[in-house]
Amino acid sequence: MTAEPVRIAPAPALHVAPGPHLTVSDFTARRMMADVLLALLPVAGVAVWIFRWYAVLQIAVCVAAALLAEALFSRLRRRRAPLDDLSAAVTGAILGLSLPWSAPWYVGAIGAFAAIGLGKAAFGGLGQNIFNPAMVGRAFVMVAFAASLAGGAYVRAEAALPILTQATPLSLAKGTAGAVALPGLWPLFLGNVNGSLGETSALACLVGGLYLCWRRSAAWQIPVWTLAGAAAAAVVANLLDPATPLTVLHHLFAGALFFCAFFIATDPVTSPLSPRGRAVFGFGVGVLVVLIRTLSSYPEGVVFAILLMNSVTPLINRGTVPKPFGGAVELPGGAK
């Protein structure tokens, strides 16, 4: 006698979970990173147009090294490598675009390892880092390979592309006392000048950056206030030293300011949470960039401006806790 098999009527399996039971469908952490990569396309496109294979190679090396570093450090931490969140690819791409065309391939590769290892994994991975990983990597190679990243490294007299035989605009302004012909504002805006791969075209940064802000993958307050801070500092610098060749618009369009404002400063992890905090942060970045350009021996100040403002981001967060709707509980009532 065989037992009749127990039959369970098919019924849908009901799941329980805490609410809310709906989530915004087109906005995920992964999508934010994908948006950044998408927004970098015009920037990378201009870089390839100006620097040709130098740009392709540099970006490819940095992205590949960043992904490799992420896999390696995840393994060391005995975690699954979160390559699919695309954050390592973003770090690699931004690092690559912040390097000069002339930097040897190992500079980019070592920079990417420093970015992911020192900048991110050491703090506990995505979301835990204090400093922008790409800028940590950039700062590391700036110190380690000073000659390859100095202003002079951008210029090669023997280069095949004529643009690569010219000094970068900010180096020009720094290196000579007056009497130099800076590139006009229009080439600076379009990007037809020498410089780091992603920084030359303010227009390309603006196009990609506006997309990021429209998608809300970047907080619009940060680029707006970064540019405002830089403009304000540039006005002051011009008043103090009317002889400087750098006008306010030169400060805005030359160097990496637009790239910084839209792609570097907007890294959500290392920038403040509240709208007011973002404004303080952005303004600080802008002021520091111009301050370093005018007062230090470096022609450009984005790396240190970002790292400095990253370091005070927790303080900014603490000082800019928004006032709740209706005020705090302890406050006496009576509002009407």
Partner: peptide, 20 residues
Amino acid sequence: RACVRCGRCVDVCPMGLLPT
């Protein structure tokens, strides 16, 4: 995933809090 501190929760909170 880990919080990326994007501040979307702050932007949408009708009570003006810092949910994250």
